[in-house]
């Protein structure tokens, strides 16, 4: 199913992963490295899905979310970037000379999807306080049904948000990336070039955690031992 006919399954996947992400199921299927794999399975290209997912994952490797807060919408970002990459790559018949550009475009669209999801969530969250207050008052009178309904219906809202973001941004991202690749604006080279550069961004954010925890000794140990092993091999 390497075509836009897979849009609905991909959007359903985006919806389910949004539940994992926002509803605190926290099975971690929403992490881009997993969502990329799942999107890849739907499109029949799991390896390429993992490739896109891993790059997105590396960008956010050292980002930590405290107090259950989430900033960027990871499931939408993962599914959209993996799907756009696979679809455009398929259309370009796996042309290695543009795969780096296809990947860069897919990741940018994925990040856009993630930010869109985040802002939608912010709006939803700030507007939810008054309905919750209303059901709280009802509960204090002994009526719990409204509370259950509101809470469970929010699962549907999260699903719908994830579903719609994927439904809209996968075809849009596909069209934009195809146009960019066709007009040959951007860098040449295979996807390797991104695999070389992007990890440095991840390292920057990982280092923050390591140094904050005063774990420089273990960091340097890992760095030196691995460096020695790689040089020896």
């Amino acid at each position: 199913m390497t075509g836009l006919e897979s849009l609905i399954p991909l959007s359903v996947l985006g919806g389910f992963l949004a539940l994992d992400f926002r509803g605190s199921l926290r099975l971690m299927l929403y992490q881009p490295i997993c969502s990329g794999l799942l999107a890849g399975y739907i499109l029949g290209e799991p390896a390429k899905g993992v490739l896109a997912g891993t790059l997105l994952q590396i960008i956010f490797l050292g980002n930590i979310y405290l107090r259950g807060e989430r900033d960027i919408d990871m499931p939408a970002a993962g599914v959209v970037s993996a799907a756009v990459f696979i679809l455009v790559d398929f259309r370009m018949a796996g042309d290695m000379s543009v795969s780096g550009m296809v990947m860069a475009g897919s990741l940018l669209i994925g990040l856009l999807a993630g930010l869109l999801g985040y802002y939608l969530y912010r709006i939803l969250r700030s507007n939810l306080s008054s309905p919750v207050e209303r059901v709280m008052n009802r509960c204090r009178e002994g009526h719990y049904r409204g509370a259950s309904l509101l809470h469970l219906s929010m699962a549907g809202v999260h699903f719908l948000a994830g579903f719609l973001i994927c439904l809209i941004l996968i075809p849009a991202g596909y069209a934009i990336t195809m146009k960019a690749v066709s007009s040959s604006v951007g860098f040449d080279g295979s996807v390797d070039i991104l695999y070389i550069f992007i990890p440095f961004i991840g390292i920057g954010s990982l280092l923050r955690i390591v140094l904050f925890q005063h774990q420089a000794f273990w960091f340097l140990s890992g760095l030196i031992i691995t460096g020695a092993v790689l040089a020896f091999i």
Partner: peptide
């Protein structure tokens, strides 16, 4: 362990680079 793994990851990234 996290710091050690971050060191491994950094080493791999620089080596590949």
């Amino acid at each position: 362990a996290t710091a050690f793994t971050a060191g491994v990851f950094t080493s791999i990234a620089f080596f590949r680079g």
